[in-house]
Design a protein around this nucleic acid. Structure first.
Length: 612
RNA sequence: GCCACCUUAGCUCAGUUGGUUAGAGCAUCGGUUUUGUAAACCGAGGGUCGUCGGUUCGAAUCCGACAGGUGGCUCCA
């Protein structure tokens, strides 16, 4: 057993020890599942009327420590499936009984959040389950495949972290259990290191940095999930949008524009209306028609396509639009900029012929790669395909073809991807690109979607070379995805230390004193910077130079110039460079004009390091 | 929406078992200082303790509802 396996066994054993402690303290506790997760473990527990809160943790931890101190062996045993069911009934463990019954009937459990290691499933995954294994430590016995550590004393260091609600088997209409999360490591040092990392992650939380760096704000009066952007945040936003749009223009996309609301009928035709009830109705329109805010853009765009007859020679027809849409997310799902009710997408839709799909997908993927490479972010790619349920529209043959094309493109473009069945949109399969925030939570950003369904539902056509009417396919794409969500991840990714081209303020000019020649010289630099499109701010305040330097540092401004008599005499400056941008150790003295020009060039070429 | 928890000044936080005019640092404003590469000094303003209701002689403190938030669950076109 290597260290990694051993750590897994420790964490899994701790889940059992926690369950032991909880059932000692609350004998009526009904147990769900208790698998290993990243950095630790959890156990789902139903206490009926009672609830566990974080205040109970010291008591549970004390109980767990007793079990650990007793160093009781984990003893494995086998039972036939029917004996196991009888055991669950006798032990009054209805959730275990349900799992065992499903196991007997189908050979599997379909629970989404269930780690198969938690079950007593035979390791070869045979469909016919004859027997299941149990592990016993002291007076506590649990259905479990294992493996475990040899005895309860060998579990390393742990800490209970929090309690959360979790629906039994991940289904909203099932009873909600309490999920107790713990973290665990082989040694106390590693545990402390992990807790330290969590503290570090807090410091780069985009909600905290967004406030500190004056990028955006969320007002109760405006409403939850409706972030508003300050001048600084808007510069950041617009720089990213401009980059996305420049890439798309180079790729043959034409900008279009559509209003932010429409008749409800638009979404009834597209199929979105019945699929997604989370919409914002516009109720007071003086008309018998119902209107709503747009939750997506594609239906609008189909109407641009449909506005005139199209020839096979017109395709591909590529439309792009950076625009805001509105989705009524449930209150508990809102999260800073990551999950909002008003989201802005760098959205695009290409209408293509069947024979153009693959090439189009390929060029989009390479565009996405270029964007993320420039931003120095890793691509974490998922191919979201359909499953066997009936929630998808369209012919199965078309789906199979679409999925084949997506996978081929992913292979050809050497994407490091995983296939996820059941994650497709109702109208087609997707290539989804995920990025991770400071706490390692994955968020979907870029998405590329192949769609045969909406052209069908809107009756879109083009005239082919032989004069026959043909149906185009539609390729949806968003590269940054939701700008808001992208920013949330990007702020955490960079800890607010943006590259020069994205920095809301690129050069901070600090005056040594407020005498007239100094102020005039600072103004001269600002005028020059403005002409070249460099974003500057002059700190003329009567603070000490040390304080002003510190303020510039805290604001994470890439370059700082201290201006005094020396600079006026020589017309040269010594730029102070933010530490993460430095590539050359020496900071040369530069003529003022050269310095500003260099910053302007760096900004234009979107470099991540400085050449100063 | 569901579960647990949180909400005191613009921000970060004190505030004893319910007991007089609720404190600090930073920020802001005013004054002094005119500063050379990570925090000058003095002073002032700023709070219906998230909101509403209840218990009590008395509530920031106890109870309830609501709102907002945090971590999960569910959902994510």
């Amino acid at each position: 057993m290597d260290d990694q396996d051993n750590l897994q066994a420790m964490r899994h054993s701790l889940a059992h020890i926690m369950a032991t402690a909880v059932t000692t303290l609350w004998p009526e506790a009904k147990l769900g599942v208790g698998p290993v997760v990243e950095n630790g473990f959890y156990y789902d527990i139903d206490l009926g009327e009672a609830t566990i809160s974080e205040e109970d943790f010291p008591k549970i931890e004390a109980e767990m420590k007793q079990v650990i101190a007793a160093d009781l062996p984990f003893e494995k045993s086998e039972k036939s499936i029917d004996d196991a069911i009888a055991w669950a009934q006798a032990a009054k463990q209805p959730y275990k009984e349900e799992l065992l019954n499903d196991l007997k009937r189908t050979g599997t459990t379909v629970a989404k959040d269930l780690d198969s290691a938690e079950l007593g499933l035979p390791t070869d995954g045979a469909s016919q389950v004859e027997s299941v294994s149990f592990y016993k430590n002291g007076g506590f016995t649990d259905l479990c495949r294992g493996p475990h550590v040899t005895s309860t004393g060998k579990v390393g260091a742990f800490k209970l972290m929090r309690v959360a609600g979790a629906y039994w088997r991940g289904k909203e209409d099932n009873p909600q259990m309490q999920r107790l999360y713990g973290v665990a490591f082989a040694t106390e040092e590693e545990l402390q290191k992990h807790l330290g990392l969590l503290e570090e992650a807090k410091k780069r939380d985009h909600r905290k940095l967004g406030k500190e760096m004056d990028l955006f704000t969320i007002s109760d009066l405006v409403g939850p999930g409706l972030p508003i952007f300050t001048p600084r945040g808007t510069i950041l936003r617009n720089q990213l949008i401009r980059f996305s749009e420049e890439l798309q223009e180079a790729g043959g996309y034409q900008a279009v524009w559509a209003p932010h609301m429409s008749r409800v009928d638009l979404y009834k035709t597209s199929g979105h209306f019945d699929k997604y009830p989370e919409r914002f109705d516009v109720s007071s329109v003086e008309s018998s028609d119902a209107f709503m805010m747009k939750p997506m853009n594609c239906p609008h765009v189909t109407q641009i396509y449909a506005s005139r007859p199209r020839s096979y020679k017109d395709l591909p027809l590529r439309y792009m639009e950076t625009t805001t849409m509105y989705r009524d997310e449930k209150s508990g799902e809102l999260h800073g900029l990551s999950r909002v009710r008003a989201l802005t997408q760098d959205d695009s839709h290409a209408f293509v012929r069947q024979d153009q799909i693959e090439l189009e997908m390929q060029s989009i993927v390479s565009m996405v790669k270029q964007l993320y490479m420039t931003l120095e972010m890793e691509l974490d790619v998922e191919l979201s395909f359909r499953d066997d349920t009936d929630k998808y529209f369209g012919e199965p043959e078309l789906w199979a073809e679409a999925e084949r094309i997506l996978e081929k493109v992913a292979k050809d473009e050497e994407l490091n991807y995983k296939v996820e069945h059941g994650e497709a949109a109702f109208y087609g399969p997707k290539i989804d690109i995920f990025v991770s925030d400071a706490l390692n939570r994955r968020w979907q950003c870029a998405t590329i979607q192949l769609d045969f369904v909406q052209p069908e539902r809107f009756g879109l056509e083009y005239t082919d070379a032989d004069g026959s009417a043909k149906r185009p396919a539609m390729v949806h794409k968003a590269m940054l995805g939701s700008i808001e969500r992208f920013l949330s991840v990007y702020i955490e990714h960079t800890a607010g230390r943006f590259p020069i081209w994205l920095s809301p303020e690129q050069v901070r000019i600090i005056t040594v004193n407020q005498t007239e020649p100094v102020v005039v010289f600072a103004d001269k630099i600002v005028t020059l910077a403005k002409e070249l499109g460099v974003r500057t701010y002059v700190d003329n305040s009567s603070e000490s130079v040390g304080k002003k330097i510190r303020n510039a540092e805290v604001a994470k401004v890439p370059y700082t110039l201290v201006i005094g008599d020396k600079e006026i005499t020589s017309n040269q400056v010594i730029p102070r460079v933010r530490s993460d941008l430095v590539v050359i150790a020496a900071h040369p003295e530069l003529p003022v004009e050269d310095f500003i020009k260099t910053v302007a060039n760096e900004s234009k070429s979107r470099v991540n390091k400085t050449s100063l």
